[in-house]
């Protein structure tokens, strides 16, 4: 449970940036087409998420990886958690 909570904290920043960006894409799409396409937002979100992790952690807060490493979470595990959460969000958004 403690580890799961830590993964959620790791994801929080990534998803904040990714949601904001994908919503902006959705609004742009709305301005051009006149309707909101959830699939496009979902797809945009999934594509942005890996870049968001790279930006937030690999560029801006590289040292924070050590917090998660000390909990036994390796780099691969953190990337996998990001992709899994991105996929879950993608499916939620295309189902809506």
């Amino acid at each position: 449970m403690r580890i799961l909570k830590n993964i959620l904290i790791f994801q929080k920043k990534i998803f904040f940036i990714s949601y904001l960006t994908s919503i902006a894409i959705g609004i742009l799409g709305f301005l051009f087409t006149g309707f909101i396409n959830h699939q496009t937002i979902g797809l945009g979100f999934s594509l942005i998420v890996p870049f968001a992790q790279y930006y937030v952690y690999d560029i801006k807060n590289k040292n924070q990886y050590f917090y998660y490493y000390n909990l036994g979470l390796s780099n691969i595990m953190l990337w996998v958690s990001t992709f899994i959460t991105a996929l879950i969000n993608f499916f939620i958004l295309i189902i809506i």
Binding site: Q64, Y69, L71, G72
Partner: peptide, 20 residues
């Protein structure tokens, strides 16, 4: 071989702040 193998065995304090 990696940080996962060392969980509960080795902890590391880096030079700079690492807390979220």
């Amino acid at each position: 071989k990696n940080v996962y193998d060392g969980r509960n065995l080795i902890s590391y304090l880096p030079q700079d702040s690492f807390l979220p």
